[in-house]
Nucleic acid binder design. Sequence first.
RNA 1: GGUGGGUUGGCCGAGAGGCGAGGCAACGGACUGCAAAUCCGUGUACACGGGUUCAAAUCCCGUACCCACCUCCA
Length: 466
Amino acid sequence: MTIRLYDTATREVRDFVPLQEGKVGLYVCGLTVQSEPHVGHVRSAVNFDVLQRWLRHRGFEVTFIRNITDIDDKILVKSAEQGRPWYNLAYAMKIELDKAYAALNVAPPTYEPAATGHIPEMIVLIERLIERGHAYPAADGSGDVYFDVRSWASYGELTHQGVDDMEPAADADPRGKRDPRDFALWKGRKESEPATASWPSPWGPGRPGWHIECSAMAGKYLGDAFDIHGGGVDLRFPHHENEQAQSRAAGGAFASYWMHNAWITTAGEKMSKSLGNTLSIPAILERYRGAELRFYVVAAHYRSHVEFSFDALDEAAVGYRRIEAFLDRAGTGEIGALPEAFATAMDDDLGTPAAVAVLYDTVREGNRLLAAGDDEAAAEAARSVAAMLDVLGVHPADPAWAGTGSSDGEARLTAAVDALVAGLLDERTQARADKDWARADAIRDRIKAAGIEVTDTPDGPTWTVS
RNA sequence: GGUGGGUUGGCCGAGAGGCGAGGCAACGGACUGCAAAUCCGUGUACACGGGUUCAAAUCCCGUACCCACCUCCA
C-alpha cells in the first residue's frame, strides 16, 4: 500500500516515495511565539501530528522537526508595547504553546529548534549564498543582506508565479535592495532595537531575516534534501518560496513534497494575530475537552477550509461522546486491528473524513452487536475503534488526556457524589421494584435538579453530570 | 494585475463520470413502566446558464458570488 500525498509544488496527489527507504524527514514551520495560540495554529499542529502518526503506523522511521521562531519584528514590537524583554515574551508564549499542544495530544516532534539557537548556521548559509552570487550586502551600509531574486531563475517555481507578475513589496522601504522583491536574509541592527536582539555577523550586528532560519535548521537536522515540508497555506508565499529559493541556490535539493493545511476561520475571516479575532485555546478548553476539540479538527480534511463555530464543535463533541460511550459499554480500550477501509482512506492524502466515516460505521456495527448480545464480536469492533482513535490521536484512554481531565481532587469528589447518589438510586430501584413509578420519577427529578442525569441500563442505573 | 481555492440536503462535512460517505438535527418504528442510550427506517443535495456523454454534483465553456496569497501570518 502506497501513501499518496497532495504536493503543493506539483498541484497533484502523488505517490509518496521517500528519499531513503523506510525513512521520512519531515519539517514543519511552527509558530512565531508572540501571542497565545488559537485554533488555527493548533490545526496545523494537529494535522501534521496525524501525518506523523500515520507515517509511523505505516512503518516509517520519522524524523520530525518543527521549529519555533523566537525572534522577529512582531516579537520586538509587542514586547516593547508590553514593556518586557523580547525574550521573556517569546519564552512565555512558548510555554503557552506547549500547554496547548499537550492539551490536544500533539506529540512532541523529534526536535524543536529555535531560531536564536541557530544563528551560526544561518550565517554560514548566507555566506555561501553571497559566494555563489545569489545574495549581497546592502549598498546603503544598513548591515542588511538580501537574497537576489533576479539571480535565481527558478524563483517563483513553488507558487507558479513569475517575478514580474508579483506586486512589489508593499512595505516599500527598498533601502539597499537591487530589486524590490529581494528579501532580507540578515537584518542589520537598528538604533531603536534592543542590543540583546542582535548577534555579531560578518556584516555587523543584526538578526536573521525570517526565512533563512528554516533553511538553516532544516538543513542541519534533515540534510540538504529531505522528504516533506509542511505549514499553513499562507506560508506558501513568500515564506516557503523563499526558503526553497535560498536552499536550492545554496546547492541543496530541499523538500521533495510540500504540504499545506487550510485555514480555520471565524465569521468568514481568517484568524490572524493582526486582526485580533483570535479564539485562543485556553478559552475553548474552558468549554470543551482537548479530545473533543481535536476530534473536531481531525474530522475535517486538512486541505479544506473550516469555518469555526461552536455549533459545529458541539456536534463533533456529541459524536465523540457517542464513540466513547460505545467503548465504555463494550468494555475495552484495547487496541486491535485497523479496518482496511480506514487505512485506505488515510493512505489517500490523509482522508480523515472518510476515515472517520469508517469509525462511525464500526461504532454502529458494534452497538448493534452489543444489542444482539454478541459481546465477543462487539469487543472486537471496540478494539478496531480504539485502533482508529489511536491513529487519530483521540483515544479516550490515551494517558495524554490524564492531565487535562480529572485531577485527583476531582476523582475524590466524584467518589463522594457517587456515594450520595447511590443511596438515592437504591431507594429508586426499590420504588421501581414496587412499581411505584411516581416515587421513582420523583427521585430521578430530584437528582436531576442537582444537575445529574440518571440512566437505567440492564445492569442497573448509572449517573452522569448533565 | 498575477496565482490558487471554494459554492453539496435544515446544519456540519466527504466524494470527483453510473451505486445517496459519514455525522448532527428532525420524523416514524423497535426496545423501555416512562425516559435516556442503542438499533432499524425515512431525504428526489450538489450556485446559475449552456455543452460533451448512453449516463454529469463530478468533464468542457460561460456567468454570479465568496475566500486566500502576492514580503507580519498556521
